[in-house]
């Protein structure tokens, strides 16, 4: 029962995220008849990551919205022991000439497994981007926060040999949070885009850093 409450809480969070808001796109080049954005990316974010995504653009002259879903896995021998899925969207709030400001918010469900533990986490990823957008290219700066809101721990027999009394279950308050900063740029041609994102990650105390404190993403968008 308690678990179902957690799922309900976080499903609603995910839906809220969907309202207000993640793909990296060139807002300036989006045409009215382009509703669907398919994306694929590879990069480094807490590991070597491969991702795919889909976005749907809602028509709005004032505040264009792209609702999207994303799925990514890290490299490794085991295919789906670790993964991250996101649901949410981008909203472009401000357009002043070629400068535009947008935010994204995404509900996250992710899993991690090794020989000691399996973690299932619901989280929230929020960020803002200020960029300069031309029809054929764009550059921008992004600041965001990734919060691991609630996490379920299920330990293996191997870890129970280390610590027999370890407690499995839902852990909260939040088990983690990291800020990230990145610059991004892209090139648009026909109904396609390639983009590059480079940045760094720091823990929410602004002192400790993750083992891989860098962010790198090379992506490709195809718009229909």
């Amino acid at each position: 029962m308690k678990n179902s409450k957690h799922y309900a809480c976080l499903l609603i969070f995910g839906l809220i995220s969907n309202f207000i808001q993640a793909q990296t796109v060139n807002w300036q080049s989006l045409k009215d008849n382009e509703k669907h954005i398919f994306s694929a990316n590879i990069g480094a974010e807490y590991g070597i990551i491969y991702g795919v995504g889909y976005g749907y653009k809602f028509d709005s002259k004032l505040f264009p919205v792209i609702a999207n879903v994303e799925f990514s896995i890290p490299s490794g021998d085991k295919l789906l022991d670790d993964f991250k899925s996101k649901i949410g969207g981008n909203v472009r709030w401000i357009k002043l000439g070629k400068f535009q400001f947008s935010t994204k918010a995404q509900g996250i469900f992710r899993r991690f497994g090794n020989e000691n533990v399996r973690l299932s986490n619901f989280g929230l990823d929020m960020s803002g981007v200020i960029g300069y957008y031309e029809k054929r290219w764009f550059v921008g700066a992004e600041v965001g926060f990734d919060k691991a809101i609630v996490t379920h721990f299920k330990h293996t027999d191997k870890y129970r040999e280390i610590f027999p009394d370890v407690k499995d279950g839902w852990y909260e308050p939040a088990t983690g949070g990291n800020f990230y900063y990145a610059i991004q740029g892209g090139y648009t041609f026909k109904n396609q885009e390639i983009y590059l994102k480079l940045g760094s990650i720091v823990s929410e105390d602004f002192k400790t850093k993750p083992t891989l404190p860098y962010l790198l993403q090379i992506g490709y968008n195809y718009k229909l």
Partner: peptide, 13 residues
């Protein structure tokens, strides 16, 4: 991957 992916689930001061 096991050493790095965990950092998004758990952070400590």
């Amino acid at each position: 991957n096991d050493a790095t992916y965990l950092d998004q689930f758990i952070t400590g001061k």
